[in-house]
């Protein structure tokens, strides 16, 4: 073999070997276990912090409100729909009271007039016309909307 080809081949082999060597050290351990990705990343994704606790957790203390809600039209709605957890209030809602928003705009999020809501028969009203000077909760109990106060 001519010297020139031999030298080049040698350089080429050295380069490839170096590449393969580096590769062995750099690839993360769990890479390729299930597929072309780092298998441990599945656990990373599982380990993210959890904010919304789920209804069951709320019922542990607030069975009374749950019962009240269950009897009326808002029965389907989960607690945290209206009482979202404050960031980091991950374990105890006594320490960090779940957020409560103002009322008219808050009710309007679901109930303001909208053709799309009308189309599926969802109760939607012209808030300005309906409320008069009052706040929604002056007449409606948000947990049981049809238990009207005077």
């Amino acid at each position: 073999m001519p010297k020139i080809i031999f030298r080049l081949l040698l350089s080429f082999i050295a380069f490839v070997t170096l590449f393969v060597l580096i590769r062995q050290f750099v690839i993360p351990d769990s890479f390729g276990k299930y597929g072309h990705y780092r298998a441990n990343s599945i656990d990373d994704n599982k380990a993210r912090p959890l904010f919304y606790k789920g209804e069951k957790k709320c019922i542990e203390c607030h069975q009374d409100i749950y019962d009240l809600q269950s009897a009326d039209v808002h029965s389907e709605i989960s607690c945290e729909t209206c009482h979202p957890p404050i960031i980091n209030a991950t374990s105890d809602c006594k320490l960090n009271i779940p957020e409560l928003k103002g009322t008219i705009e808050f009710c309007a999020q679901c109930h303001t007039k909208n053709a799309a809501r009308e189309a599926i028969g969802f109760p939607n009203i012209d808030i300005e016309e309906h409320k008069g000077n009052k706040n929604c909760i002056e007449c409606h109990n948000p947990h049981a909307p049809w238990e009207l106060t005077e």
């Binding site: 001519p2 010297k3 020139i4 080809i5 030298r7 080049l8 350089s11």
Partner: peptide
């Protein structure tokens, strides 16, 4: 040069072919 010092006609021909 990778330590190859040939400059003769033969090596030049090889260079050209490669």
């Amino acid at each position: 040069t990778l330590g190859i010092n040939e400059t003769d006609e033969k090596s030049a021909k090889l260079d050209d072919r490669l």
